[in-house]
């Protein structure tokens, strides 16, 4: 259970960090780096989520006899 909520907190933390970095880079005139940071954050978060989606689909497949 604690593992599950940890994932939510991790993703939220990454989002906040990426948001702050985005702001700082935008204000200092590095728009393209800000975009790349935002994209990298999204990819990292998606990688974390992919495992969870696979778990859910595996569970549904085994339980509903696919």
């Amino acid at each position: 259970m604690s593992m599950e909520i940890d994932l939510v907190f991790k993703i939220a933390a990454i989002g906040i960090i990426v948001s702050i970095l985005n702001q700082v880079l935008s204000r200092s005139g590095r728009e393209e780096q800000a975009t790349m940071t935002s994209l990298a954050g999204l990819v990292v978060v998606l990688m974390m989520l992919a495992q969870k989606i696979a778990d859910l689909f595996d569970l549904v497949k085994t339980l509903f006899e696919f």
Partner: peptide, 21 residues
């Protein structure tokens, strides 16, 4: 909600994580 103002894509991923769990 807190993330949605700045990073809408990561907020969507957060929602997706909650739904998966």
């Amino acid at each position: 909600l807190a993330l949605g103002k700045q990073e809408k894509d990561i907020a969507t991923v957060l929602t997706l994580t909650g739904c998966c769990i």
